[in-house]
């Protein structure tokens, strides 16, 4: 029986807020910048306790990213905070030149990613950010799956030298990663061991995949679930080991099909170990207003979509 201990329900952005606050206490070089979204990013505690290390950039994301790059000169570790849409698309050129090409130790922390931002609609629901960020040389891309893991990831990226994109979100979701779990950038978690199909998921789709695995288990299908929290560098070793066993894969993400986790996995399987793959992702479409869960259903990134994709891919073996 697939069972997970649940440690309550929280949003991943609050995990970031707690992690950042802890870094404030433990690492004097950590500074934080925000573009007028302190409350949304849950940066309040850091701002209150470390005001001299907090920089309010106003609604000027380009300047914020450029400043963060400059702040590394002299040894600071800047964490920038705004919505994912404004952390990436709006400032792509600044990230490309000042951060990635210059290889600066900037942590771009992006909340409200994907459809689950909800009612604000498509202007804010970025579904292309993982693709944009993973294409940049020197950039590490981390998409943690729940509150605990987002906190652990926030602490871990401070120790990693180099540019990082950390993606998290708004909806309240179950917490199923242990509070004391080890988080290692680039080392995926095998959350469920199985033999019939491998699901590779990130972010909120990890919980949806757990729900799917339970449904499939009841139908006699044995699922192996990999929480691929680091999209770049991708943990090929864990992926290939699982595929050797199951011989098929479903990728699940709150992102566009093009350029996301699924494409990263596809690159590995087409070049190293060819097996059938199905995508659970948004298919070349903008989102719209609605509740997070309504949107996941409508845009086919819900647990049922993961179930359907698993059954389909197993038939293609």
């Amino acid at each position: 029986m697939i069972e997970f201990e649940i440690f309550g329900n929280k949003d991943t952005r609050s995990g970031f807020g707690e992690g950042l606050h802890e870094l404030g206490k433990s690492n004097n070089e950590v500074v934080a910048l925000c573009a007028d979204l302190i409350g949304s990013l849950k940066m309040d505690a850091f701002v209150k306790d470390f005001p001299e290390r907090f920089f309010q950039a106003g609604i000027s994301e380009a300047n914020m990213i450029g400043m963060a790059a400059g702040m590394t000169i002299g040894g600071k570790i800047p964490f920038t905070g705004t919505f994912a849409a404004f952390s990436t698309g709006r400032v792509y050129d600044q990230i490309r030149q000042s951060v990635a090409y210059s290889n600066k130790n900037v942590k771009i922390c992006a909340s409200h990613a994907g459809l689950t931002l909800g009612e604000d609609g498509a202007t804010h629901q970025i579904l292309e950010d993982i693709g944009m960020m993973k294409m940049l040389p020197n950039m590490t891309v981390v998409v943690p799956c729940d509150f605990n893991q987002t906190k652990q990831a926030t602490l871990a990226i401070a120790e990693h030298e180099g540019p990082v994109y950390l993606r998290f979100g708004r909806p309240v979701m179950p917490i199923f990663i242990k509070p004391d779990a080890e988080f290692k950038i680039g080392k995926a978690d095998v959350l469920i061991e199985g033999t019939d199909v491998t699901i590779v998921a990130c972010g909120h789709l990890v919980w949806k995949s757990i729900e799917a695995a339970k449904v499939l288990e009841a139908q006699g299908v044995s699922v192996e679930l990999i929480n691929m929290h680091t999209i770049k560098p991708l943990d090929k070793e864990t992926l290939l080991k699982s595929l050797a066993k199951t011989k098929c894969v479903v990728t699940a993400e709150e992102h566009m099909r093009a350029g996301g986790l699924g494409d990263s996995v596809a690159q590995v399987i087409t070049t190293e170990f060819l097996v059938p793959q199905e995508y659970v992702a948004v298919n070349d479409s903008f989102g719209e207003s609605g509740t997070p869960m309504e949107l996941m259903t409508k845009y086919h990134i819900d647990a049922q979509d993961v179930v359907d994709a698993c059954l389909k891919v197993i038939k293609r073996k």
Binding site: M64, I65, G66, A69, G70, G74
Partner: peptide, 8 residues
């Protein structure tokens, strides 16, 4: 922007 960051 880079220079302002360095100055901060």
């Amino acid at each position: 922007s880079n220079a302002i960051g360095a100055a901060e």
